[in-house]
Protein backbone atom coordinates (compact mmCIF):
# COMPACT_ATOMS: atom_id res chain seq x y z
CA UNK A 1 0.00 0.00 0.00
CA UNK A 2 2.94 2.31 0.46
CA UNK A 3 3.71 2.06 -3.22
CA UNK A 4 4.09 5.41 -4.96
CA UNK A 5 3.71 5.17 -8.70
CA UNK A 6 4.77 7.73 -11.28
CA UNK A 7 2.27 8.74 -13.95
CA UNK A 8 1.91 11.44 -16.57
CA UNK A 9 -1.04 13.81 -16.61
CA UNK A 10 -3.12 13.50 -19.79
CA UNK A 11 -5.74 16.09 -18.97
CA UNK A 12 -7.78 17.62 -16.17
CA UNK A 13 -11.24 16.05 -15.99
CA UNK A 14 -13.78 18.61 -17.26
CA UNK A 15 -15.89 20.09 -14.45
CA UNK A 16 -13.86 18.18 -11.85
CA UNK A 17 -10.80 20.32 -11.34
CA UNK A 18 -9.53 18.04 -8.58
CA UNK A 19 -9.33 15.05 -10.88
CA UNK A 20 -6.72 14.47 -13.52
CA UNK A 21 -6.54 11.66 -16.03
CA UNK A 22 -3.12 10.11 -15.66
CA UNK A 23 -1.27 7.63 -17.83
CA UNK A 24 0.74 4.99 -15.99
CA UNK A 25 2.63 2.81 -18.40
CA UNK A 26 -0.30 2.82 -20.82
CA UNK A 27 -3.06 2.45 -18.22
CA UNK A 28 -5.23 5.55 -17.88
CA UNK A 29 -7.01 6.36 -14.66
CA UNK A 30 -8.31 9.41 -12.90
CA UNK A 31 -6.42 10.43 -9.81
CA UNK A 32 -7.22 13.13 -7.28
CA UNK A 33 -4.85 16.11 -7.41
CA UNK A 34 -6.28 17.91 -4.39
CA UNK A 35 -3.07 17.47 -2.39
CA UNK A 36 -0.89 19.37 -4.82
CA UNK A 37 -0.20 22.81 -3.59
CA UNK A 38 -0.86 25.02 -6.57
CA UNK A 39 -3.34 22.39 -7.82
CA UNK A 40 -2.40 23.62 -11.29
CA UNK A 41 -1.17 20.46 -12.92
CA UNK A 42 -0.82 20.65 -16.66
CA UNK A 43 -1.09 17.93 -19.26
CA UNK A 44 2.39 16.50 -19.63
CA UNK A 45 3.32 16.95 -15.94
CA UNK A 46 4.52 13.91 -14.04
CA UNK A 47 3.11 13.06 -10.61
CA UNK A 48 3.77 10.48 -7.93
CA UNK A 49 0.55 8.59 -7.16
CA UNK A 50 -0.36 6.98 -3.85
CA UNK A 51 -3.75 5.38 -3.04
CA UNK A 52 -5.53 7.35 -5.74
CA UNK A 53 -4.01 10.73 -4.94
CA UNK A 54 -1.14 12.61 -6.53
CA UNK A 55 1.37 13.09 -3.69
CA UNK A 56 3.68 15.46 -5.48
CA UNK A 57 4.92 16.51 -8.87
CA UNK A 58 8.12 14.90 -10.03
CA UNK A 59 10.58 15.47 -12.83
CA UNK A 60 10.22 13.51 -16.04
CA UNK A 61 13.62 11.88 -15.77
CA UNK A 62 12.94 10.76 -12.23
CA UNK A 63 9.56 9.36 -13.26
CA UNK A 64 11.02 7.39 -16.14
CA UNK A 65 13.79 6.05 -13.92
CA UNK A 66 11.26 4.89 -11.38
CA UNK A 67 9.13 3.18 -14.01
CA UNK A 68 12.21 1.46 -15.33
CA UNK A 69 13.10 0.37 -11.83
CA UNK A 70 9.61 -1.02 -11.18
CA UNK A 71 9.97 -3.03 -14.36
CA UNK A 72 13.48 -4.22 -13.54
CA UNK A 73 12.29 -5.44 -10.17
CA UNK A 74 9.20 -7.10 -11.64
CA UNK A 75 6.92 -4.86 -9.63
CA UNK A 76 5.33 -3.01 -12.52
CA UNK A 77 2.39 -5.44 -12.64
CA UNK A 78 1.63 -4.68 -9.02
CA UNK A 79 1.68 -0.97 -9.75
CA UNK A 80 -0.55 -1.37 -12.80
CA UNK A 81 -2.96 -3.51 -10.85
CA UNK A 82 -3.21 -0.82 -8.22
CA UNK A 83 -3.83 1.91 -10.75
CA UNK A 84 -6.33 -0.17 -12.71
CA UNK A 85 -8.06 -0.85 -9.42
CA UNK A 86 -9.11 2.76 -8.79
CA UNK A 87 -12.86 2.30 -9.06
CA UNK A 88 -13.72 5.84 -8.06
CA UNK A 89 -12.32 7.09 -11.29
CA UNK A 90 -15.10 5.63 -13.40
CA UNK A 91 -17.91 7.74 -14.81
CA UNK A 92 -20.06 9.81 -12.47
CA UNK A 93 -17.31 10.15 -10.02
CA UNK A 94 -17.87 11.10 -6.38
CA UNK A 95 -14.14 11.62 -5.74
Amino acid sequence: MCLAIPGQVVNIVPEQPLLAKVDVGGVRRNVNVGLLEDAAVQPGDWVLIHVGFALSKIGEEEARDQLRMLRAMGEDELAMEEVRGYRFSEEGDPG
Binding site: V51, G52, V83, G85, Y86, R87, E90, D93, P94, G95
Partner: peptide, 13 residues
Protein backbone atom coordinates in the same frame (compact mmCIF):
# COMPACT_ATOMS: atom_id res chain seq x y z
CA UNK B 1 -10.38 -4.69 -0.91
CA UNK B 2 -9.99 -1.16 -2.21
CA UNK B 3 -7.01 0.62 -3.70
CA UNK B 4 -8.01 4.07 -2.53
CA UNK B 5 -10.19 5.52 0.23
CA UNK B 6 -12.10 7.18 -2.60
CA UNK B 7 -13.10 3.70 -3.78
CA UNK B 8 -14.74 3.13 -0.40
CA UNK B 9 -16.55 6.45 -0.74
CA UNK B 10 -17.69 5.45 -4.19
CA UNK B 11 -19.01 2.16 -2.84
CA UNK B 12 -21.06 4.08 -0.27
CA UNK B 13 -22.55 6.33 -2.96
Amino acid sequence: MVYSPLDALRLAV
